[in-house]
């Protein structure tokens, strides 16, 4: 019953007659920062959704803080998931609705307040605090849809943090952003992780956006865990070549790991 812990055991997800996820054992102790990487279709998002109770596994258990998410009733499941800050992929929220930034961030306070009650002044303070923290203080009354992609991502992070989460789950939070925004978002997640005692699960197909504090990387391929361990260990050409189709090199620039695909002609010594 440790706050912020997550344990998956024997989790299987079948879809359309094939196994899309098969996790025998994955333990995330509280306060871990886990990067989940792998090629397209590796099961990264499915894994995150299983952890958040959005996808019910065909078999196995998902223990969050000592309770099995797959076997809880609807009401208890809601109570437990109040502690999950979730940042979905772009397609999973209606960015075109005219909600103001404040309204979007205030959504983070919804599940931690009981049904049939309105948000209080104290909630509004928390909302404003997080808007300021992510640096959007001058935009609070603007609509969410008028913000740029990077600003929207910051707003979603503020929304998740306003919830006072124990586990923060990010699904490709840096996708579709230019390199400058990618690192702004990455550094922001790092800062939040350092300043707040939370567990972070960060799904990304780009290893370079995993911040320095990400101490552990889970490499998925074909729905299975190919490697799980320290950054240096997992993000090595040997391990990566097992997940992708070979010809990869890893460049370390300022502590961030960039995967570079090296074409055969280059490997043979040619130039381009």
């Amino acid at each position: 019953m440790t706050p912020g812990s997550l344990v998956l055991s024997n989790v299987r997800v079948h879809r359309g007659g094939r196994t899309v996820l098969q996790i025998d054992n994955l333990k995330v102790p509280p306060g871990d920062f886990v990067g989940i990487v792998g090629p397209n279709g590796a099961g990264k998002t499915t894994l995150l959704k299983v952890c958040a109770g959005l996808v019910k596994p065909t078999g196995g258990s998902v223990w969050m803080e000592g309770l099995d998410l797959t076997r809880l009733g609807a009401w208890r499941k809601c109570e437990l998931r109040q502690h999950i800050g979730y940042i979905p992929q772009v397609a999973e929220y209606n960015a075109e609705l005219p909600f103001t930034l404040r309204e979007v961030v205030a959504m983070g306070r919804t599940s931690i307040r009981p049904l049939l009650t309105a948000l209080k002044a104290e909630d509004r303070e928390v909302v404003d605090h997080w808007i300021d923290t992510v640096g959007l203080g001058d935009r609070r009354n603007q609509t969410f849809r008028s913000l740029s992609g990077g600003e929207q991502q910051k707003a979603l992070i503020a929304r998740a943090m306003a919830q006072d989460p124990r586990i923060l789950m990010l699904d490709e939070a840096c996708a579709n952003l230019d390199f400058d925004w990618k690192y702004q978002i990455s550094e922001m997640v790092e800062r939040l992780y350092r300043q707040n005692q939370i567990t972070v699960l960060m799904v990304s197909h780009e290893t370079s956006v995993l911040p320095h504090t990400c101490g552990r990387v889970v490499l998925l391929a074909g729905g299975r865990i190919l490697a799980d361990g320290g950054v240096e260990d997992v993000l090595s050409p040997n391990k990566l070549n097992g997940a992708y189709h070979g010809g990869l090199r890893v460049a370390d620039i300022g502590g961030r790991k960039y995967i570079v695909s090296v074409s055969r002609s280059l490997e043979a010594g040619g130039t381009s």
């Binding site: 958040a52 109770g53 009401w75 909600f99 306070r109 919804t110 599940s111 307040r113």
Partner: peptide, 26 residues
């Protein structure tokens, strides 16, 4: 009026609502 705060989250994203423990199905 009674479910205003929950309805707003539902409008914005049913995925977020479900993942973060809003009584979405109800």
């Amino acid at each position: 009026l009674a479910f205003n705060k929950e309805l707003k989250v539902l409008l914005f994203s049913r995925t977020i609502a479900a993942a973060t423990g809003v009584h979405e199905t109800f």
